[in-house]
C-alpha cells in the first residue's frame, strides 16, 4: 500500500473526528433527556407541594382535611423500619458475603448458592411480601408491626448487600491477604483486621443502595398489613404510656405503623384534589430522604477510601 500523503491523513482524521463529535452529541442529548425528566419530576413535586412545606406538615398526623394532614407517622415509620432493616440485613449480608468469598470451598454447591443469590435480587418484592405475611406475621406471630416490615425489607435487600460485599472483597488484592496470612494470621484474623475494614467502603455503598430501594418499597409493606391511616407514634423507649405504665426499650418494634410510600399512595387515591398537594410534598420529602442517605454514603466512602491504597 502506498503511504498516505499529508492531505489524505488529514482527511482521515477529519472523518474520524466528525464521528467522534457525532457520538459526543448523541451522548450529551441522551444524558440531558434523562436529567431533564428527573429535574422536571422533582420540580413538579416541589411546585405542586409548595403549599405544604411547613413545619406542621412534618409534625401532623394524617387527617381528613388535606390542609391539616401531615406525614409525622409516615416519616417516623419509614425511619424506624429502615433501622430494623439495616440492623437485620447488614450483619447477615456481610457475614454471608464474607463466608462465600473467604471461607467457602469452590464447588457445585457454592456455585448453585451464588446463582440463586443473584436470582433472589430479581424476585418481585410482592413475593417477599407474601412470604413475610406467612412467616413473620402469622407463623412467628410478629403481627403487622415495624419488626415484620423491617425483616421483610431486610430479606429483600439481603442479596444486594451480599453481592456488594463480595465485590468489595474481590477488589482487595490477593497480596494483602497473603501478606496477612504469611505472618501467621488465621482466616478470621485476616478478615477482621484487613478484609472487612478494606471492603467497608464498598459494603457501605451496597447497604445504602439497598436501603434506598427498601425505603421506596410499597407492595410488600401493604401485603403484610401496614396501616394507611394512623394517628399515633410507636412508643418511645422508656416513655410513659396512656395507661400510666412505662414502655420497654423495644416496644416500638411491635407497634403498628405506616411508611412514606403508603402515605403517598393513600393521598393520591383520594377524590379530593387538595390531597394531591400533600402527595407531591410527601413525594419530595421521600426523595430528599433517599438523596440524603446517598450523600451520607458518598461522604463516608470518601473518608474511608482516602486511607486505603495498595
Amino acid at each position: 500500500m502506498k503511504p498516505l500523503t499529508t492531505e489524505e491523513i488529514r482527511a482521515v482524521i477529519a472523518a474520524g473526528k466528525l464521528r467522534d463529535n457525532l457520538f459526543k452529541a448523541t451522548g450529551v442529548f441522551c444524558l440531558a433527556l434523562a436529567l431533564i425528566v428527573i429535574v422536571a419530576l422533582v420540580a413538579d413535586m416541589v411546585i405542586k407541594g409548595s403549599d405544604r412545606f411547613t413545619l406542621d406538615f412534618f409534625l401532623n398526623f394524617a387527617s381528613r382535611r388535606a390542609t391539616q394532614a401531615g406525614i409525622l407517622s409516615a416519616w417516623v415509620g419509614s425511619l424506624l423500619v429502615m433501622l430494623v432493616t439495616a440492623m437485620a440485613a447488614v450483619p447477615l449480608g456481610v457475614a454471608a458475603g464474607l463466608y462465600l468469598e473467604e471461607y467457602a470451598k469452590r464447588n457445585w454447591l457454592t456455585n448453585l448458592i451464588e446463582i440463586n443469590i443473584t436470582n433472589l435480587a430479581a424476585v418481585p418484592s410482592i413475593v417477599y411480601g407474601l412470604l413475610a405475611l406467612g412467616i413473620f406475621v402469622y407463623q412467628f406471630g410478629l403481627g403487622q408491626s415495624i419488626l415484620s416490615a423491617g425483616l421483610t425489607l431486610a430479606l429483600l435487600i439481603l442479596p444486594i448487600i451480599i453481592v456488594a460485599t463480595r465485590e468489595a472483597i474481590r477488589a482487595i488484592p490477593a497480596m494483602i491477604r497473603e501478606g496477612s496470612m504469611a505472618v501467621g494470621a488465621t482466616r478470621w484474623q485476616t478478615c477482621r483486621y484487613h478484609i472487612v475494614p478494606y471492603a467497608m467502603p464498598g459494603i457501605l455503598t451496597g447497604v445504602i443502595i439497598g436501603l434506598a430501594r427498601a425505603i421506596g418499597e410499597t407492595a410488600p409493606i401493604i401485603t403484610i398489613g401496614a396501616l394507611t391511616f394512623i394517628a399515633f407514634l410507636p412508643p418511645a423507649p422508656l416513655s410513659t404510656l396512656g395507661d400510666g405504665s412505662t414502655a420497654g426499650l423495644f416496644d416500638w418494634v411491635m407497634a403498628p405503623f405506616t411508611v412514606m410510600p403508603i402515605q403517598i399512595f393513600n393521598w393520591t387515591s383520594r377524590p379530593d384534589p387538595a390531597f394531591e398537594v400533600n402527595a407531591a410534598a410527601a413525594g419530595f420529602v421521600l426523595m430528599a430522604m433517599v438523596l440524603s442517605m446517598n450523600a451520607v454514603a458518598i461522604f463516608l466512602r470518601y473518608k474511608m477510601r482516602k486511607n486505603i491504597k495498595w
Binding site: 488484592p173 497480596m175 494483602i176 497473603e178 501478606g179 496477612s180 496470612m181 504469611a182 505472618v183 501467621g184 483486621y193 484487613h194 478494606y198 486511607n307 486505603i308 491504597k309 495498595w310
Partner: peptide, 17 residues
Amino acid sequence: EVRMRIGMVFQKPNPFP
C-alpha cells in the same frame, strides 16, 4: 504454625493500608 516460624517478603511491596 509454619508461618509463625517462617517469615516471607513478597515480590511487590505489600504493606497494609
